[in-house]
Computed example of a mutant assay.
Amino acid sequence: MFKKLAIAGIALLFLAPSIMLVSIGALINPAQAANATCLSTGLTVGTIPDELDVTDASGYSFTLNHQQLTHAATIITTGSAIEGVNRDGVQIALMAALTESTLRMLSNTSHYPDSADYPNDGNGSDNDSLGLFQMRPQSGWGTVADLMDPNYQVRAFFGGPAGPNYPSPRGLLDIAGRESMDKGEAAQSVEVSAYPDRYRNYESVAEQILQALTTNTTAQPAGGGAVLGPVPETSRVVFPMPEGTWVMTSPYGMREHPITGEYKLHSGTDFAGPDGTPILAAADGVVTVAEYSGGYGGLVVIEHTVDGKTVATAYAHSWETGIRVTAGDRVTAGQHIADVGSSGNSTGPHLHFEVRIGGTNGEYTDPAVWLEQHGAADLDAGEITDPGGCTTSEGNES
Rank of each mutant, 00 (worst) to 15 (best):
G389F: 03
L98A: 12
R330Q: 15
D121N: 13
G322Q: 11
G225M: 01
G261A: 07
E320V: 02
V325F: 11
Q32E: 07
E397T: 13
T391N: 10
E203R: 00
N201A: 11
G297F: 01
V301F: 00
F239E: 12
G9F: 07
F14V: 14
T305K: 03
R155M: 11
P251I: 02
I82R: 06
R136K: 15
V340E: 08
L132R: 08
G122K: 06
D117P: 02
F62R: 07
T55C: 07
A6P: 00
P17S: 14
L213C: 04
T63E: 12
E291H: 07
T385W: 02
R356N: 14
D56T: 09
Y166M: 06
M135V: 12
E243T: 13
V301H: 01
V286C: 15
L103M: 12
G171N: 03
P113A: 13
T332S: 14
A283P: 05
A31T: 06
N29K: 14
L228H: 10
S61Y: 00
P251L: 02
Q153S: 09
S235R: 15
P251F: 00
G224Y: 01
V286K: 15
E191R: 15
T392R: 13
I357Q: 12
G334T: 11
E179P: 10
L69C: 02
D126V: 05
G276R: 11
Q68V: 06
I19G: 06
P274Q: 14
T313N: 06
M1H: 13
V311T: 05
N29T: 14
P49G: 13
I279L: 08
Y252S: 01
T37W: 06
Y202I: 05
